[in-house]
Write a protein that binds this DNA or RNA. Structure first.
Length: 419
RNA sequence: GUGGCCAUAGCUCAAUAGGCAGAGCAUCUGGUUGUGGCCCAGAAGGCUGUGGGUUCAAGCCCCACUGGCCACCCCA
């Protein structure tokens, strides 16, 4: 038997209210802030991601769905949004648009990972980017989109985690300080952390190894190593966050796995998705566009995992509004009536009234049972007897009250009843 | 990539100690001609994830594979 590939899932009709609720809100909030939607291809030239995300990152080294197409081109299924959006910014000369350019996207992301709670091989992200502006108010703007959205969705107990990982000017010194600090305790680190020490020392701060915990509190904080520019940027941003009423905490252990981040990094944490607390993560990437061959252009953005948002909303007991469904069923009895009902259903739908047709020539009892399950407000009974008189019986399901109506009067009558 | 737990009907789960595979829900039909929900009856639904092995006999024991859940790694 075929099964959905590992780490993928079908989004069934029963899940759809949540998806609609969440994605609608994303469009609305993005619009509220003046963001415009952009969609980029679901696959790109592999080199774009290798260059954009960075060699040495887990995503590039072991998580990409890369393959050769029939023409021999090396392509990769989108493992994150940013690189593709940057490519589009450069390709379409968006640096001549009024700056900053504010873009958002929504769609599937592919990573070859071992699935677990809140982690899949195909998941969906809401992605937001602002290009072409260094102003810390832009950092605030981006975080504010996430904050406004999550709040509007009905979240309680959100945590905004903030840090600055510096820039090419100040990061090397910090990195060195970290290495020096942990090197003196090398014998107390286990294998995983010792490997991190050489490969990516910043990630040591995020270690969950027990042996490392006592060492972390006293480890050097990036904030103490920031250059003037980065320090000012962070301080100003915090002022703005306070002004916006966005509670946040500096988490000096917040480091992110993608190479391109400079200065601001942040995550929003929520509960209910197992060990994966981050529902949203992002930061500033002031070198990326240049790295990809465009003009020097600062940028900042975040990705938000839609599956994680939905999982935690469920866990918090947030109920999405029901999806619109047909309010009327037409139940014909007998073949001539079945023919007439075809026309009636067509007319109802043309009048904007969602209508179901009673299939299969079933008994009235069976059709009413079906209408009940479908949750319609009215059932229009059209038997051969009614047809002879050119009338129908309209049954209000909630009360069981029935009315006889002339066939041409059905649509207007239902229209006023259904609003 | 590493580790732990797990896999029986569409769903949630039973099946002493290896000994004929079950229930609830859902589906379909019926309970006097054409009237739903509640109730009652019946039907359908299974190569017990796949492939090997042990045994007179395997849903149950052993191995491999596939998949799920959870954690690490990493990320959203």
């Amino acid at each position: 038997m075929y099964q959905a590939p590992r780490g993928t899932q079908d989004i069934l009709p029963a899940d759809r209210p949540y998806w609609r609720y969440v994605t609608e809100a994303m469009h609305q909030v993005a619009g509220l802030f003046g963001f415009q939607q952009i969609d980029t291809p679901i696959f790109e030239e592999t080199g774009l991601y290798v260059r954009g995300v960075g060699e040495g990152t887990d995503i590039v080294d072991k998580e990409m769905y890369s393959f050769q197409d029939k023409g021999g081109a090396e392509v990769t299924l989108r493992p994150e949004w940013t690189a593709g959006v940057m490519r589009a910014y450069i390709e379409h000369g968006m640096h001549v648009w009024p700056q900053p350019v504010k873009l958002y996207s929504m769609g599937p992301i592919f990573r070859y990972e071992r699935p677990q709670a809140g982690r899949f091989r195909q998941h969906h992200q809401f992605n937001v980017e602002v290009l072409g502006e260094m102003d810390p108010a832009v950092d605030l703007e981006v975080m504010s989109v996430a904050w406004t959205l999550l709040t509007r969705l009905g979240y309680r107990g959100l945590h905004l985690q903030l840090n600055s990982t510096g820039c090419p000017v100040c990061r090397p010194a910090y990195r060195q300080a970290l290495v020096a600090y942990f090197a003196q305790y090398e014998d107390r680190l286990n294998d995983v952390d010792r490997r991190r020490l050489t490969i990516n020392p910043l990630r040591l701060l995020d270690s969950k190894e027990e042996a490392a915990q006592p060492l972390l509190d006293a480890a050097p904080h990036s904030a103490d190593y920031l250059c003037e520019e980065c320090a000012t940027h962070l301080a100003t941003l915090r002022t703005y966050l306070d002004a916006a009423g966005m509670q946040h905490s500096i988490n000096f252990r917040l480091v992110r796995g993608l190479d391109y981040y400079t200065k601001t990094v942040f995550e929003v944490w929520a509960e209910g998705i197992g060990a994966q607390a981050a529902v949203c993560g992002g930061g500033r990437y002031d070198r990326l566009i240049e790295e990809l061959g465009g003009p020097p252009t600062p940028g900042i953005g975040f990705g938000m995992g839609i599956e994680r948002v939905i999982a935690s909303l469920r866990q918090q007991g947030v109920q999405p509004p029901p999806l619109p469904a047909p309010r009327v069923q037409v139940s014909p009895l007998g073949e001539p009536a079945r023919v007439a009902a075809i026309t009636l259903v067509r007319d109802l739908r043309a009048a904007g009234i969602g209508a179901l047709y009673g299939f299969g020539g079933r008994s009235l009892k069976s059709q009413l049972k079906g209408a009940d399950k479908a949750g319609v407000a009215y059932t229009v009974i059209l038997g051969d007897q009614e047809l002879a008189d050119n009338v129908v019986i309209v049954r209000e399901m909630a009360t069981g009250e029935q009315a006889r109506l002339g066939l041409p009067d059905v649509a207007p009558w239902l229209r006023t009843r259904l609003g």
